[in-house]
Write a protein that binds this DNA or RNA. Structure first.
Lengths: 333, 333
DNA sequence: CTGTTAGCGCCTTCAT
DNA sequence: ATGAAGGCGCTAACAG
């Protein structure tokens, strides 16, 4: 059977002090005599004592835990974010409790579990939040920060990159490079990121008296973008430029054009993505894209969460961070 | 200030029952009269009550939490594993507490935090475990499962794919396809996966009276593999086949050959990887590789952990799962 | 089936 | 600076 772990009680007995003395040894700013501290630490070491974080949480009413909700980890963009977020919170003594949730119904049970887990804050990375749960979090003063998603609920914070201006830049850039028939492949229909990128893009075209030559629906995934590309490029007249709402899809477009359509990038078709995932820089792709400031976004989200946790009341701020155009060879001069 | 959450006490008061009756309503197999249950649930709903998992953990002595230790999430192979593991454990009512740890010193503090977190089990995904901590986990009967890593410590379980035979297959395959000057790019020097793949590979060559034409040290990363490729292919005589210890490096080789060396794959050089990450299937690469059974590995790791948690004592089993060769166009006929 | 009673391991006043 | 005492919110016997 599982052994009972060592308690502060037992350490106290061995060190010949009270249990509270032991407790103080493991609390950052408690007053304890150096000599006592030494005795206690020696006893603790001898017994292999580790403070029980759960018991501590119960009384301090803080779990030093952040619940992270994601829907997909296969997109390296979110994987990077998760990794960085984990390191960031670790520095502050917080840990991430990971929840995957794709469908709506899964989301409900996941949110229930988060509430029970006593997480001090919630980070939504590639997932959407039903407004009923948003309300419940706000009511409990549990800060929620969403990255690159929008929820119409007071009290929920949001961190996003400047998707609109990113899209706008793409539109202007493609026109400037002389593209005539520009197509757009959207991301998930319900995602604010995709619609903002699209809107900026369309506005840029409109500002130059132009319109989008073709629009297709994607879902941020490789396979779908591939299918869409096949449709877009089977007609006699096809686009001479494609703006995909994320890099994953842009890569799929390039691959499909080269492998199946016998078209060259950028000579025959220019391709632009969004995110600047590592693959975008690989020699085979040299994808022109719009870089999202991953670390800045996570830093901002971290600050928002920690500040709200510290102050004890939720705020609901919205931050928009600037993006950086990355020009590579996937668009002709 | 942060509101005090609703307790079972308050629910009990509103429902006019005892606190333990409330508790029983939220325990799976407790006997409670349907009528009482209804009253309690109504009161709970009205107050927005959620059982406090931390308080429960304190008394049940189980956190229903698995600590996952990773060193890199940028490799999609591990990202996939994490996602699948999360879903798998979620199904069993467990959650993942994520820890990132790269360097050795970080590892020490991370392990200390894991021990304090009262995790019921530990899953090592792309990280190594110092034997002192392995010992501490075993001493506390905390089951540890390592995926694709080895630790020389009794009581720690391991799940690995059959790296040796994967490497062996690659060796035979390249010979069969007529390759003459076969190079190997190793992964991290200290990783058992790399050395096992290498050994199988070398043994296959030896079995045909052949030797490895060139060996280079890599670290599983893109950039390093790129540098290595530049070195391997600057001489007058260069390899006509490269076996990289993982797909990431194989992709880097292909990219570098095409973009910088003006060599074609597979016409001039055959390239084989290991893992079968999604990118390997992309039209631009068509990488021949050895598929690791991600889901089976995670399933096995999950079973091992849950079984040991249930039984209450650690076992230290070693499982080796079969790999699947995936033949694509990156090797000429 | 239900209420009462003890804690789980620790932090935190409050005296000393 | 230290010890004693009282919970944190809940589960698990135990009576009834």
């Amino acid at each position: 059977m599982r052994k009972r772990p060592v308690t502060s009680q037992e350490v106290a007995a061995l060190a010949g002090v009270s249990q509270s003395a032991v407790s103080r040894c493991f609390s950052p700013n408690a007053s304890i005599a150096p000599k006592t501290r030494e005795k206690v630490l020696a006893a603790a070491k001898q017994l292999g004592y580790r403070p029980n974080a759960i018991a501590r949480s119960l009384i301090t009413r803080t779990s030093r835990t952040i619940a992270v909700v994601m829907s997909q980890l296969d997109n390296p963009f979110y994987a990077q974010m998760l990794e960085y977020a984990s390191r960031r919170f670790q520095q502050h003594g917080y840990h991430l409790l990971l929840f995957m949730s794709s469908d709506e119904q899964e989301s409900a049970s996941v949110m229930a579990e988060i509430l029970q887990s006593q997480a001090d804050g919630i980070l939504m990375l590639s997932a959407t939040l039903s407004s009923s749960f948003a309300g419940e979090c706000v009511a409990r003063s549990i800060p929620v920060v969403m990255i690159n998603r929008t929820v119409a609920f007071e009290g929920v914070s949001q961190v996003a990159s400047d998707n609109y201006h990113g899209g706008y830049w793409v539109g202007e850039f493609l026109i400037e490079r002389g593209c005539e028939r520009i197509a757009f492949i959207a991301g998930l229909a319900e995602s604010s990121t995709s619609s903002q990128r699209r809107q900026g893009f369309l506005d840029a075209l409109a500002a130059h008296g132009r319109a989008c030559w073709a629009e297709a629906r994607g879902d941020y995934q490789f396979a779908t973008a591939q299918a869409v590309t096949r449709e877009l490029f089977t007609a006699d007249v096809y686009p001479d430029a494609v703006f995909a709402a994320n890099d994953h899809m842009a890569i799929a477009v390039i691959d499909t054009l080269k492998a199946e359509m016998d078209l060259r990038v950028p000579e025959d078709v220019a391709v632009v993505g969004f995110d600047n995932i590592p693959v975008a820089a690989w020699p085979s792709y040299q994808l022109t894209t719009v870089q999202q400031p991953i670390e800045a976004m996570v830093d901002e989200a971290t600050s928002l969460l920690l500040a709200q946790i510290a102050s004890g009341h939720v705020a609901g701020e919205h931050k928009v961070l600037p993006v950086t155009p990355i020009v590579r060879a996937s668009v002709r001069r």
